[in-house]
């Protein structure tokens, strides 16, 4: 009797195993696999659970053999399910790989913005100048007459001070006339008033002059101005620094040339040209800082000297980016702005 029970128990186990093998060979997806799992090895009403109950009915002497058999078959069935599950997973992967995409369809849109071409130009100039030891400084755009004119050796009767040539500002609580600065040299005066030589600075920013807007003029524009004050400075230093700058900006070994000019705050004063594609192009104005400017900030012109130069940012940017009308820089049309992606030069 007992033997029969044990044999039947083992036979049940064996047939369960073949049923599982059969069922698993038929499952085709994760869902049917799960259904099979519930049927065969579900924790509550699974077939394996039912057979396990038969284990308790075996005779005492049969129990160790029956338990061993049960555990062996249980392990096999479990591993069959693991195998099947792995098969299902890789099957679903295969199915996906087969799904082909039109690689010419557009990708999900990612948009970067852009830095204004004027800002890019300023950054490039100041980055080159910083390698030559010049630090960037800034100062107020609304200036008094001392910093915009007098300290720069532009006396009261000078034509540059004409009310029609400047944007003067009415201020209620002050009797000192102020104006929108017409050059960034004002910042250099402010720095010199507070610091002692040696100095190497670049001042940059917006400046304002009442010009009628056209392709090459705008009443608001940008300047970059450099100043170097060190004992023993000569025009040869000025020329060498500007040549370094031009070579770095344009690439290659660029020649520069000085043409005599006139600015109230420098003497000697020159226009600076650089040779570009076989032509001399105007780069800006420069000169040795006028002794009266040094005096006005409390320096002794016999002790220290230096040079200054100024560049028109719009002119450089227009040439660099092929912009024929500088008013385009201030129209703020995104179709214009997004064309000028930073080339990583500064």
């Amino acid at each position: 009797m007992t033997n029969f029970n044990l044999d039947a128990f083992v036979a049940d186990l064996e047939s369960l195993r073949s049923e599982v093998e059969q069922a698993l060979s038929e499952v085709s997806d994760v869902e049917s696999l799960e259904t099979a799992r519930v049927v065969f090895s579900g924790a509550k009403n699974g077939r394996l659970k039912a057979i396990q109950k038969g284990l308790g009915k075996l005779g005492r002497e049969d129990k160790p053999v029956g338990g061993k058999q049960f555990n062996a078959i249980k392990k096999i069935i479990e591993s069959l399910f693991v195998e099947a599950s792995a098969r299902m997973k890789s099957a679903s992967k295969d199915a996906k790989a087969i799904e082909q995409v039109d690689v010419t369809l557009p990708g999900s849109p990612i948009r970067f913005g852009s830095v204004h071409p004027i800002t890019q130009t300023i950054r490039r100039v100041s980055s080159i100048m910083s390698k030559l030891g010049f630090e960037v400084v800034d100062g107020p755009e609304v200036e008094d007459q001392w910093h915009n004119f007098e300290a720069l050796a532009i006396p009261n009767e000078h034509p540059a001070r004409d009310p029609l040539d400047n944007f003067y500002i009415h201020v209620a609580n002050s009797d000192r006339p102020v104006l929108l600065r017409s050059q960034t040299s004002t910042v250099q005066i402010r720095v010199m008033e507070h610091r002692k030589p040696p100095l190497r600075i670049v001042s940059l920013g917006r400046v304002y002059r009442p010009d009628t807007a056209d392709a090459t003029h705008y009443p608001m524009f940008h300047q970059v101005e450099g100043l170097l004050i060190e004992p023993g400075t000569t025009m040869a230093h000025l020329k060498s620094v500007l040549r370094s700058f031009a070579s770095s900006f344009l690439g290659g070994d660029v020649r520069v040339r000085f043409r005599p000019s006139f600015f109230p705050f420098t003497e000697p004063s020159v226009e600076v040209d650089m040779e570009w594609n076989g032509r001399w192009i105007e780069m800006g104005g420069a000169g040795m800082v006028d002794p009266s400017v040094l005096q006005s900030v409390g320096y002794d012109p016999d002790e220290v000297c230096g040079f200054a130069f100024g560049l028109g940012v719009e002119r450089i940017a227009a040439r660099r980016f092929g912009v024929a009308d500088i008013r385009d820089f201030y129209r703020n049309d995104i179709r214009f702005l997004e064309q000028f992606h930073d080339r990583g030069q500064a």
Binding site: G133, M235, R243, S269, P291
Partner: peptide, 28 residues
Amino acid sequence: IDLVEEVARVEGYDCVPENIPITAVPVQ
């Protein structure tokens, strides 16, 4: 300085050297 400029501009600025070394200064 006005006389210096007169001498310089008549002599011509081409005589001014353009390749003298510039001392390095660290900047932040």
